[in-house]
Nucleic acid binder design. Sequence first.
DNA 1: TCTAAGTGCTACATTGATGTGACAGATAAC
DNA 2: GTTATCTGTCACATCAATGTAGCACTTAGA
Lengths: 180, 180
Amino acid sequence: MRADAARNLEAVLTTGARMLADDPGASIAAIAAEAGVDRRTVYRRFASREELLAAIYEARYEAVERVVEDARLREAPVAVALHRYVEGIIGVNRKWPVELTRLKADEEIRGRRDALIREVDAFLERAVSEGLLRADLPVAWPGALLPQLMHLASQQMSQLTAAQAADLVVDTFLRGLGAQ
Amino acid sequence: MRADAARNLEAVLTTGARMLADDPGASIAAIAAEAGVDRRTVYRRFASREELLAAIYEARYEAVERVVEDARLREAPVAVALHRYVEGIIGVNRKWPVELTRLKADEEIRGRRDALIREVDAFLERAVSEGLLRADLPVAWPGALLPQLMHLASQQMSQLTAAQAADLVVDTFLRGLGAQ
DNA sequence: TCTAAGTGCTACATTGATGTGACAGATAAC
DNA sequence: GTTATCTGTCACATCAATGTAGCACTTAGA
């Protein structure tokens, strides 16, 4: 692929992620314009809107999978792994802010998503069994809360670096906002 | 208004809130079908899609305002007011799960929204000054976190009553998920 | 029972987004 | 400088959703 074509492709993907996160109904024309290319150029790369979305999700998943791998959720000390995971995901959220839940579930993507969820769930169970997390709460709660916290910090605390935002998220996750 | 018309109107509003929360691009035809009425019936009540959305937002705002009022955020003991507020909002979230942020900001609605935010922010400041909340975190953080927590509990913990979900939210908000 | 209010249905015009075709011009890579 | 690649533009077909119209039918409320 020619270098300018690669640049345009990258611009379309990241711009698309940003705009679709803001408005899931954003048109391809609007995304193309914002990315500085013609609508037709997008259609040359992606046969349909569906395919563009899939490519964006794919890009995000790849980034998330790399973060999970680097965090070594199975072996590293839980506190260390947690912080590394959170910091990594905040970075991903900022580059690929697209919301995944409304995905029309390509079978293969769904499988990868489930695998990631299982990985993180297993990690959280380890955190409970090693005494980092409380054991007196609904099992689904930590796994649901953590992504929300990371999402929130990624968006609202945009003046913080990913590392600082991760400090805040981990601190909030473990200690809450109550005094003492 | 005739009683059956009022029933239909109510069904359109609540069904619309539910479907739009799930998919912001849901068509009026789909909402009408799900609510068990004809598309044309919706257009008789609301001149445009815009107006239907405004009516749904309006309904949600009214419910939120009632909750804020009942919680007596200015006078009641902070711990009591917090729990009452959280429980009330979780109830509202469940009846009117629509996401407000993407609203096209009718001027009057925007004003009411800002007033609500100010009210809650002032309450959270009081909670800090009375020693319920930590003072060593970014000021915007608690105000951003609390709605997310309530949203999460409303959706994910659907098996809990509003009161139980509020217990969970308040406990998480104040203590976090860390052991000890 | 009567009547006005409300609804469902069929049909139609309009708009905006999607997706495709052909071609001339630009530019990265050699 | 040459060439294969990539792009922008004009044009067109299609499709789904929005919004409107008239008419026959149903039903709540007196």
